[in-house]
Design a protein around this nucleic acid. Structure first.
Length: 703
RNA sequence: GCGCGGUUAGCUCAGUGGUAGAGCACUACCUUGACACGGUAGGGGUCAGAGGUUCGAAACCUCUACCGCGCACCA
């Protein structure tokens, strides 16, 4: 598997070490394309022109080449050209690797400094002439003007030399991709060098365990990236000419023998001075962190959480290492894989979409963010915007939302604390319909969260908790429950507080992974762990089957809708928020009678009069609700304003009615759509028609 | 060149076939007995474009455009 060999590798001239393919990144670079003339030895005065970006390596040219089918140069096959720097005869050959479309269709073959050229050299048994030092300076005493110069200075100088000699016909600006060292950020040199390599074992198995989902990737599309890498995998150059890292356990003696072992074989042996690629050490991490006996038994990791940028460096290699090297390897392949799930996080980018980096200085300081928004605010804000597998565009606004959420949580707890102890857990049948509603929604939230957790959708978990807490709990339940909390009836009050506690404790526990500090604090401050209600961790869905759940929930949503319609009337009629208003409800049934006090509170009303016979004066603002018509009796009559409002409302509903009608007239829809969908449309048609009739009556009374 | 994402409100983004959503920003009203880091109401979208599948498409399929990323090439 592991061998030492002399091959073309990626060389970092700044760090002066070999690199693996994964440590090389290509970047577009602006440069020049130099058109250089090589004189034909056999035909003085005739020149072969070649386009190159690297005139400083001309001294290392060992041949000129073009594509065998290229008719322009056929007569030159077998002839020679004069190398213009370090003048020497070099053969003219043909090779399939040359692209006739590029430049002049002629390539200068420089096996020492280019991978493709090296391969051409091998095919044609050409020599390798190396004209670079390890640090990237020119090594060519034959051309004293260039010898010792840095490769980039030499490029300029070489072009000047050629120009002086009339061998440079033109220079064009040119942009190409240049391979850079990820480590030193300088262009890499392809270099023939003696290094240690690994021929990857178990690549087929590594592909299979992911394809067959013994290891699952989240999100799944990274499987394809992983597969693509494994399918095109090349041997891994594992030796580094740097001093930090594990020293390579290879020993040499004077007669050229090599031994690979941990201990020195004897005095006349010297150890390889090189170290191992840091990832060659890291890929053993899954089991090598444990002692000898333990690592034979199991892997401690079930889930690997990491960034997709190290899928090749680490994830893929850990899988391979597990399959090949796991101590106490089992017959069963699933026992040898180092983890079962891999969760790829997004990479946090700045507002412009750039990766955060020290050199750009675009990373926010976490400590400053914590100062401003709190540790929990930061954590929650981040979790809520962490989309599965997408990169995250960082915006401080989103952390601010996290802080606001934490403040909201703190404040509702403070409100709760002002109202003393709660009762023992009340029977479901005795709860208000609003309490039943919030408990039902808590159940739905718990269910949704569990599903999301299973798929590592942490943003969904955070979002569901955010919505449930802020909207269902604070905006609706707590506001509705104030009727009972502020009532004289102690038992009703305590029973409402008990539900507040129950739901709040569930919220605190569900939020704990996202906001550990504030939830811990509230848990003890509010005594949520010591009350009379027994709490399950994690919170379980509460049993609601024994009440007439659907009926109660339908009434709650009718009430909430009516409240919203009433609030809208207030706002439209410009009744200031701090002024009490009066409403009249012309309702068909009496379901809502017992809930009028709560509706009155939610509407900031003096009273809501239930009047089945109410004859509205023309111009009294009215809205249609599931409970009936609600009138805003506070504002006398402004016929014009009311007419405009009704017209707008009528137009809106007519529009929706039209959509529904069209669908129901469509025979294929009625025949083919699921019965429930058709039923839903029929119900809406009925509702809209009824609403429209009443709205039009009100409208007509105004004209 | 091959592959993977993306394109939804001014901004950042949710949304896996059935009435287009959230937060911020914006407009109006409000410091009312938890909260102005707040409450209530409202305005704002032919869901990048074209074609197809379907009773029905933001969603599924095909193509195109643009943005981002990876791999390969890069004389």
């Amino acid at each position: 598997l592991i061998y030492r060999g002399r091959r073309m590798i990626n060389w970092d001239p700044a760090a002066q070490t070999a690199l693996s393919d994964e440590e090389v990144v290509s970047k577009p670079q602006k440069g020049n394309l130099y058109y250089v003339r090589y004189e034909i030895v056999e035909e003085p005065g005739r020149f072969l022109e070649v386009a190159t970006t690297r005139p400083e390596t001309i001294m290392a040219d060992v041949a000129m080449a073009f594509h065998p089918s290229d008719k322009r140069y056929v007569d030159l096959i077998g002839k020679n050209a004069w190398r213009p720097l370090a003048r020497e005869k070099i053969p003219i050959i043909t090779d399939e690797a040359i692209d006739p479309e590029f430049g002049t269709g002629v390539l200068k073959v420089t096996p020492a400094h280019d991978k493709v050229d090296f391969e051409i050299g091998q095919r044609h048994k050409l020599p390798v002439v190396d004209v670079l030092h390890a640090d990237g300076r020119i090594n060519c005493p034959a051309v004293p003007e260039l010898d010792g110069l840095d490769r980039f200075e030499a490029r300029q100088k070489a072009a000047e030399l050629l120009k002086e000699r009339g061998l440079l016909s033109k220079t064009e600006p040119y942009e190409n991709n240049v391979a850079f060292s990820d480590r030193s950020e300088v262009p890499v040199e392809p270099r023939l060098s003696e290094q240690w390599f690994l021929r990857y074992p178990k690549t087929k198995e590594a592909l299979a365990v992911v394809r067959e989902h013994l290891i699952r990737f989240f999100p799944g599309h990274w499987e394809k990236v992983y597969a693509q890498w494994l399918e095109n995998i090349q041997d891994w150059c594992i030796s580094r000419q740097i001093w930090w890292g594990h020293r390579i356990p290879a020993w040499y003696n004077a007669s050229g023998e090599v031994r690979v072992q941990l201990e020195s074989p004897g005095n006349d042996w010297t150890q390889d001075p090189d170290t191992l690629d840091t990832w060659f050490s890291s890929w053993l991490w899954a089991y090598e962190t444990m002692d000898e006996a333990t690592r034979k038994k199991f892997y401690p990791t079930s889930v690997l959480v990491t960034g997709p940028d190290i899928i090749f460096f680490w994830v893929a290699r850990m899988i391979i290492a597990g399959l090949e090297f796991k101590p106490g390897k089992s017959e069963k392949i699933e026992d040898n894989i180092p983890f079962h799930d891999v969760f790829f996080t997004g990479i946090i980018r700045d507002k412009q979409g750039r990766k955060m980096s020290k050199s750009l200085g675009n990373s926010p300081d976490p400590l400053e963010l914590i100062d401003k928004y709190g540790a929990d605010g930061l954590r929650f804000g981040l979790m809520r915007i962490a989309p599965s597998g997408q990169d995250i565009r960082f915006d401080e606004k989103q952390i601010e939302e996290g802080r606001n959420f934490a403040t909201k949580l703190w404040n509702v707890a403070r409100f709760r604390q002002m109202h003393g102890p709660s009762a023992a857990a009340p029977k479901i049948q005795q709860l208000s319909i609003f309490a039943v509603e919030v408990l039902a929604r808590l159940n739905e939230t718990i269910e949704a969260i569990e599903t999301a957790y299973r798929e590592y959708q942490f943003n969904t978990v955070a979002q569901r908790l955010y919505d449930f807490f802020w909207s269902d709990y604070c905006d609706w339940f707590v506001e509705a429950a104030k009727t009972e909390i502020f009532s004289e009836d102690e038992s009703r009050k305590k029973s409402a507080l008990a539900v507040m506690d129950y739901v709040l404790s569930a919220i605190v526990r569900l939020l704990h992974p996202f906001m550990p500090h504030i939830t811990e604090e509230l848990w003890s401050l509010l005594g949520l762990g010591t009350g009379s209600i027994q709490f399950a961790t994690p919170p379980k869905k509460i049993e609601l089957d024994d009440v007439d759940l659907a009926k109660r929930r339908k009434l709650v949503s009718a009430i909430y809708e009516t409240v919203q319609a009433g609030r809208n009337l207030r706002a439209e009629a410009k009744v200031p928020s701090n002024k009490k208003a009066n409403f009249i409800l012309r309702a068909a049934g009496k379901d809502a009678v017992s809930e009028l006090p709560t509706m009155t509170r939610l509407l900031n009303a003096d009273e809501i009069k239930l009047d089945r016979q109410y004859k509205a004066k023309p111009g009294v603002p009215v809205a249609m609700t599931p409970l009936g018509e609600i009138f805003l009796s506070t504002r006398g009559t402004d016929k014009k304003a009311e007419r405009d409002r009704l017209d707008k409302e009528i137009a809106k509903i007519e529009d929706e009615l039209e959509t529904v009608k069209t669908k129901l007239k469509n025979k294929s829809f009625v025949d083919r759509a699921p019965a429930a969908v058709v039923e839903e449309h029929r119900r809406r048609q009925k509702d809209f028609t009824a609403q429209l009739k009443k709205l039009k009556e009100a409208r007509n009374s105004l004209s």
